[in-house]
Design a protein around this nucleic acid. Sequence first.
DNA 1: GCGCGTTACTGAATCGTGTTAGCAAATCTG
DNA 2: CAGATTTGCTAACACGATTCAGTAACGCGC
Lengths: 341, 341
Amino acid sequence: MTQQSVTMADVAKAAGVSRTTVSFVLNGRMEANIPEATRERINQTARMLGYRPNAAARTLASKRSAWFGLVTEIATSPFATDVIKGAQRSAWKDGNFLLIAPSDDDPGMEMLAVEKLLEQQVGGLIIATTWHREIIVPENAKSVPCVLVNCFDAEGEFPSIVPDEVAGGYAAAEILARAGHTNIGHITVAQGIPAQIGRQTGMKQALRDHGLSQEESKIVAGDGTADSGYHGTQELLAQPDPPTAIFCGNDRIAMGAYDAIKELGLRVGEDISIVGFDDQEILAPHMRPKLTTIALPFEEMGMAGVSLLNQMVEGSPIENRQITIGCPPRIRSSVAMHGQR
Amino acid sequence: MTQQSVTMADVAKAAGVSRTTVSFVLNGRMEANIPEATRERINQTARMLGYRPNAAARTLASKRSAWFGLVTEIATSPFATDVIKGAQRSAWKDGNFLLIAPSDDDPGMEMLAVEKLLEQQVGGLIIATTWHREIIVPENAKSVPCVLVNCFDAEGEFPSIVPDEVAGGYAAAEILARAGHTNIGHITVAQGIPAQIGRQTGMKQALRDHGLSQEESKIVAGDGTADSGYHGTQELLAQPDPPTAIFCGNDRIAMGAYDAIKELGLRVGEDISIVGFDDQEILAPHMRPKLTTIALPFEEMGMAGVSLLNQMVEGSPIENRQITIGCPPRIRSSVAMHGQR
DNA sequence: GCGCGTTACTGAATCGTGTTAGCAAATCTG
DNA sequence: CAGATTTGCTAACACGATTCAGTAACGCGC
């Protein structure tokens, strides 16, 4: 109500030209060579009248919308924020919008979300998960360009963007090896997920490359919780030849590890070195000592997702369908030099 | 491209009726009394043909869109997620969408964000901040119903939804008082913000109501960081008559407090009781012992924002323009009984 | 003064839906 | 059985843009 809404026709009348001309000018169509004087006049009157384009009309007429859809499990994790942030920023730069729809990790819900987004005429779709895993992409998602972020489909049919877990695990172990540690423990996240497999694989490779061996007993299975970090650390430190450093599968595990270490009267970053994974913004930099960890590049993944989508929408050929994004180390204070170098 | 897009006209032709009839049936216009048989036939063919309504056309024709705009500082804080989550859920229920635009705490950016959202024909606007404070609402936000979440304008011109800081502070202090503590410390968040003022006010009231007094020295000014919690706690515990319980202005402060307490060889939840504020999902339940704290009702605020917006869009009278939402206590394990009851 | 190319525009169709006004047939009313 | 009402549907315009196909005016060479 009270929608006075100035239209192009109003601007055209006020400027004494046709709708078409106004459209050309406001969209910067230079090939319709409208002289500078007219352009200026039209822009002036548009501004004076407070003209605001109607996106719905534009979408309808041009059959191209300014929206991408993002389907994600906002319900569960704060991680989603960063993906949204990155995607949002990247889309915004090109004048695009993000329509966010919840999937809640329920296939039915997810299909509905996609359906609703398609009704909104989204030009492309991003499906993002909060933890790196394989998913089944809803059938209807195929009616429009679609990119997977932090997940992948079994057939590799969709382009996907995932963190480089292996390189991340490698970096984590290398930090400890470079600091002179030779007896390194590891507490894993939940068994069988890409994060666990990748990080552990990377760690083993790094240790080999640095000429270090690691007994099986130095790898304890956790489940990603702080509790599992606490108990895992107790288990490691109770061994006859306890490790001097622990690579924790994620930051929450590291949090539990801190507690266990302190309870034993030892000092994190002096007696025992710790490296985490994830770089949780409200955790890692606030721990005492501040946690050295490997960051999950959620924001970059979101940005990459949108730019990949842009390419697909424009019909550019996609060279790389499976993109991995590096996990940068965040060096803080939980790792100490050990022994002679 | 390859937009086969089945339209209403296609459905109409296939069903042997006019487009108008299809529109009536699909929109459930009962007053146009179409007999059950015809309705069924149209629904069938629509489903068979895979008809998907075009939201842009609908928005254009009906002059009412199915989406609300949410302007927020996604850039800075994980808190935003919960507001988005609540708003999203609430909107989704009514078939509405949320368009998210970043404000990045920059007035120019914010105006642009609002402008862009208005171009998208949003039916209403939510402006949300990550921390409770006063804001200046951009002028153009007035062209559509607008609700403030977690913030407010100086003139009270806009309906706003904020957490009940005072009641939260009251609850926090009461938990400690009820546990038998009589010597209670407090470490504040940044000076002068509503969170600091409200929580402190609530605390003082609770202590008065429980017949307790509190020396000025037992309130130390922090800045919301874990570091300030660490040093604040050291300061409090170094006093000649140290408190047996500390109400920390937020969970990060509590995190620092834990570290300081443990370093002194004391036990949290046994020797010293702690209550936090915010209930940060990835922090509070994972601390050791698990932190008793007061939750900030972000999700509820988001939901309340959307439903208030719905009322406004429908033209219902708004009875309450300044809504405060309660901050529920989350009782965990960081508070112990003290002394005789 | 004719043909041709450029410049600076305009008219009209189109996008897919909502919505009002109205019409023919069927049914009811008295 | 005439007139009024209801039932079941349709024609046509509107919404606010984009875009294609012109076209009138002008300059220019010959």
